[in-house]
Design a protein around this nucleic acid. Structure first.
Lengths: 104, 104
DNA sequence: TCTGTGTGCAACTTGATGGTTGCACATCGG
DNA sequence: CCGATGTGCAACCATCAAGTTGCACACAGA
């Protein structure tokens, strides 16, 4: 319906999650345990956040032997940015229309 | 630091709030009581949502006699869309760098 | 095989948030 | 002036999400 916009926005709304994404982007690839050194929360909390981010399509995680490596996946984010821009444009359009009508 | 991004994302993350914004955009201007006919929640809930949206800078409300008229204000939204696009670009850049290093 | 390190699962606490109801106050119209 | 309509405020409830702790399980390396 909203094509994943819901999940992306919800995921990005959390500051810890954004920090996590940033840390991941700079590292390129990392495990939950490693990321626990970047963010002041437990590994468990990080795992939950990564699950949310993965659900939103912003992150991709795969098992590699005994550890699980995560990495950023920016497609969905770009799509959401586009959606937002379009929404803003539409609002402007409607507002302009209203204004024009009011002046007649 | 995050320059209002936090508030905008949090505000937009709620489906009811998005419906509210849409209703507002089509109406051009409306009161909380009026909007209560568009969304299946109490006027009080709507007031709270509008407060959140106003805090995020997505909506602008002013008193007009006995009633309070709200309207959409898309600047902040557009700014956040830009922010998101930039973020996506940066992630791509870093990922490309990582990949290049890995191949040397 | 045994030990250390990394993951996964589950229960629990706590604070924020979406929502409601009830009532008091302001204001427009007859 | 009086009634109807619109706002504001406060208390309250339920749910959800972030975070923690504890423990069991998997696997690499000596």
């Amino acid at each position: 319906m909203t094509n994943g916009v819901d999940e992306v926005l919800a995921a990005l709304a959390d500051p810890t999650r954004r920090r996590l994404l940033d840390a991941l982007a700079t590292r390129g690839e990392a495990t939950a345990t490693t990321l626990a050194t970047d963010v002041p929360v437990t590994r468990q909390a990080i795992v939950k956040h990564l699950a949310v981010l993965q659900q939103a399509g912003l992150v991709d995680g795969g098992r590699q032997g005994r550890e699980v490596r995560y990495s950023v996946k920016s497609d969905r984010l770009a799509a959401t940015a586009d959606w937002m821009a379009g929404l803003a444009a539409e609002w402007d359009r409607r507002l302009a229309t209203i204004k024009r009508i009011a002046e007649s």
